[in-house]
Design a protein around this nucleic acid. Sequence first.
DNA 1: TATTGTTATACTCTATAACTATA
DNA 2: TATAGTTATAGAGTATAACAATA
Lengths: 175, 175
Amino acid sequence: MARVLKTADAAAPAADAPAAAAQGGQELSYGLLPQVLGYHLRRTQVAIFRHFSRTVAAAEDITPGLLGMLQVIAANPGLGQSRLAEAMEVDRSTIVKVVDQLEGRGLIVRQPSPHDKRSHCLRLTDEGRAALRRMQALMLQHEDEFTRVLTAEERRCLIDLLARLHGRTNPASRS
Amino acid sequence: MARVLKTADAAAPAADAPAAAAQGGQELSYGLLPQVLGYHLRRTQVAIFRHFSRTVAAAEDITPGLLGMLQVIAANPGLGQSRLAEAMEVDRSTIVKVVDQLEGRGLIVRQPSPHDKRSHCLRLTDEGRAALRRMQALMLQHEDEFTRVLTAEERRCLIDLLARLHGRTNPASRS
DNA sequence: TATTGTTATACTCTATAACTATA
DNA sequence: TATAGTTATAGAGTATAACAATA
């Protein structure tokens, strides 16, 4: 578990308005927002999504969401759609279109389950495995670029703090 | 600027599939995802959004986005819509509906600008100021609850790392 | 010409509810 | 009864393109 070292004490910022920020070329105030975690989370997610779009998506026409699904299917061959939905914490009905898209692009197949005629077993095709390898390489490069402003330790610490907040244990930091 | 102290070296996790995770009650694998910052960002944002919905939104019928806009308007009286759009990094056309909603609820007004007949000056109403005070109190409580699993230093460190990533300077940590 | 606010439109992501075929 | 997948539908949230009024 990474820990954090305080160096500079964050001076409490003035929470009120900067008199006349509205007209001139002055900088405008964000009020309490800079102290709000949710604000920084959203800003960071928008930034990383745009970086992903310019790098990974530009080359491979994929979204972070679809690539995540593809990775989970690859890591769990034969997974059913309902269990995939649970894993990604989205509704079963949302998964249908995701799987439609990945199957439509020839990256995965829906196979009939040998044990349950209602269920589909999801598996990557050969093409899907090749595409995943390419996409993962691009994605790791994109993440490296995006986090270039952080040290490796800071990056690990950040992931660790986020993992603690969203509650899923982070296998990468189990000692 | 907060720094980070390494304590446990994160052992590189196996990136490949866990043989037969698909059928039984076994735990399923997330592949490379636990090493991916974007994945943890999204997960955390979903978690904090749900917490916000159960706490702040349940009491005041507001979204994080609308509350953020309200705070920026409050902090910059007389702000125009285009500058608000720039500040929040969304399109001007997106702002229109946001302002419509806030105005429709009586929280802000569009006033004609004295200097530019095209432009609207956005201002909080008395009711808007009162609502903002209530909402901010709830929001700060919500953030405290959500980050209860972190120490105050860890929370500051997290915000600092995120602020560095999305590039906006974080006024709360200027020494 | 450029900018402010606006409208019409569309796209993505997501959820709810109801359906079918199994179990 | 309950579950797996599906469909129809709707609601956010966002963007693009074009427009009128004004700068």
